[in-house]
Design a protein around this nucleic acid. Structure first.
Length: 264
DNA sequence: ACATTGACCTGAGAGC
DNA sequence: TGCTCTCAGGTCAATG
């Protein structure tokens, strides 16, 4: 689930559970998530320290240590955090387990091992190294900025929304929701969207992400006119009741309403 | 520079 | 039941 709203929920979770507690143990259960970082280096950087603040950029989560280093967490396609005490009840796919002096643990889960944990000394360098665009909810990312990055693009609108170099934070399912709310066909090309359509797209993008965060990124709590809870084979348009269409865009499934999201 | 495709991983569910 | 195939909410490298 880890798109911008999910990661924001994880950020708040980490902030409310794991700050200002001294780290006693660090167990790396899979080296794969560490990339170039060695378990030894990670342990050395974490043990004896405490997290003192959190940050997020797009789908990337950061936790700042009192050494001023940052632990950078990315969740890939499947991943989440869990703060818990009883290690016997630890879920199966934890790849990193951080133990605090109070006996609780913060577990980082990544079933498919597509997540990454890194250690960095400043956020700007990570964002630059990954060529991440502005965070989708950054207030400075307004219509003129949106128009600037969309100008001259000819690709598919959905792909552009999901391109982290252009805008950071939107993945496959929220892209579907944004396009649905903006009533834009998922295969529409960026250069086919006029000023009004672009404005609507940006406005719906912000609204959908904010709403999802307010709902704890839990589709069961989403507004009744949201597509995501209907996003499965046989799902129906929450607006007109028609069967949802399902097509492939860039090897990813796209759900949309053939009726409400216009002709191509 | 931009657009498109496939590989990277594991596991769940469909179909036979 | 058990096997194989397809698919899953992300990202990166390679190609045109």
């Amino acid at each position: 689930m880890p798109e911008l709203p999910d990661v924001e929920v994880y950020r708040r979770y980490l902030g409310s559970t794991s700050l200002h507690k001294r780290i006693a143990t660090v167990q790396v259960r899979s080296n794969k998530i560490l990339g170039n970082l060695s378990p030894r280096k990670l342990r050395a950087a974490l043990i004896g320290r405490e997290f003192q603040s959190t940050a997020r950029h797009g789908k990337q989560l950061f936790a700042q240590l009192d050494s001023n280093m940052w632990l950078a967490l990315h969740f890939g396609m499947t991943g989440y955090l869990m703060y818990f005490k009883n290690v016997d009840k630890e879920p199966v796919y934890d790849r990193l387990l951080i133990g605090f002096v109070n006996g609780f643990h913060l577990g980082y889960y990544s079933q498919r091992l597509l997540g990454k944990v890194e250690l960095v000394d400043n956020l700007g360098s990570v964002i630059a190294a990954k060529h991440l665009g502005p965070d989708a909810l950054d207030p400075k990312f307004d219509f003129p900025a949106f128009k600037r990055v969309m100008a001259r693009r000819k690709g598919i609108a959905k792909t552009a929304l999901m391109n982290q170099h252009i805008i950071a934070g939107i993945g496959n399912i929220y892209a579907d929701e944004i396009l649905f709310q903006a009533r834009v066909h998922p295969q529409a090309r960026v250069n086919e969207l006029d000023e009004t359509a672009l404005k609507t797209l940006l406005q719906k993008m912000k609204a959908v992400l904010r709403t999802a965060i307010a709902c704890g990124a839990d589709p069961a709590r989403f507004p009744r006119n949201y597509l995501i809870p209907q996003r499965y084979k046989g799902g129906r348009c929450p607006r007109c009741g028609a069967d949802l269409g399902r097509i492939k865009i860039g090897a990813r499934g796209a759900y949309f309403c053939l009726h409400c999201q216009g002709a191509l």
